[in-house]
Nucleic acid binder design. Structure first.
Lengths: 146, 146
DNA sequence: CCTATGTCAGCACGACTGATATTC
DNA sequence: CGAATATCAGTCGTGCTGACATAG
């Protein structure tokens, strides 16, 4: 039992919890929810199947279907058939989806950048250096819960 | 327009999004949800009023009331009157709440510690150094959305 | 009388499971 | 036929607003 690591874990969890509140507050102001924007961001590099969206978002397939339908209703994505496999639905961004995605990212990045400006450059560089490590940690946690 | 800061913001947001998935997956396995555990953690140092819980959790008072009622039904907290102000409800941990809180934290910390062990010590120290800066960033973001 | 505190009622969003098609 | 893919139907958790009772 490494109690130092347990302390570390507790502090990290506390920090994460606070980050959640901020994410929620950002959700309230914009028209595009975090979930929807994440989905649009996934599709930026090309069409994806519904199951890929689900896996990538950490949600079940029916939930992904639901999201895709909402985005389609809003005119932000388009569902098309996969010529190679008729079971598959390929989801792709529409032009409107592409521009809404860009706007939403810009708006959220601006809010974030404004907050980053209140930090010292040492603090900013500490966060910058930690990002890849946290990403690796996230991946390790994701794997634990397969 | 500082485009470097915008990039930074985008990377940070991506990282946060992934961290969220992990939080959700942790929720599924345990009996105590993140929200409930957070509330219990707030009460560890002494009773709080419902409005204080709401403010601390970043939610509205009616939502806090609802959570408190659920926790009370589960026998984890107790609602008592404030002798100094009859409008106020003081929420305090029960013995059962105290032990459930300890168990849940230990379990989550253990999962987290296990993932932390997969990192190099450099990566761990990078995260450790970033935690206070991220906490400050969270505070700045919280203030922006008053 | 006005404000603060908490609760209730009703609603919305977004996840889940279980039950189907349909296609490979 | 069994497995994979997506959808539909119904449920649940948890947040919200607006209305209200009670106390300061």
């Amino acid at each position: 039992m490494d109690s130092e690591l347990q302390d570390f874990a507790q502090h990290y969890r506390d920090m994460l919890r606070h980050a959640l509140y901020f994410v929620r507050s950002m959700d309230a102001e914009g028209s595009l929810s975090v979930g929807h924007l994440s989905t649009l961001n996934m599709l930026a590099d090309g069409p994806l199947r519904v199951s890929a969206i689900a896996r990538n978002a950490g949600i079940r397939v029916p939930s992904a279907t639901e999201q895709v339908i909402k985005l389609e209703t809003a005119g932000l994505v388009q569902r098309t058939a996969d010529p190679a496999d008729a079971r598959v639905v390929l989801v792709r961004l529409t032009d409107q989806g592409r521009s809404r995605r860009a706007e939403a990212n810009a708006s959220r990045n601006a809010t974030m950048a404004q907050a980053l400006e209140t930090l010292t450059s040492d603090e900013r560089s500490a966060i910058l250096k930690a990002i890849p490590a946290i990403a690796k940690l996230n991946a390790a946690l994701a794997q634990q819960n397969h």
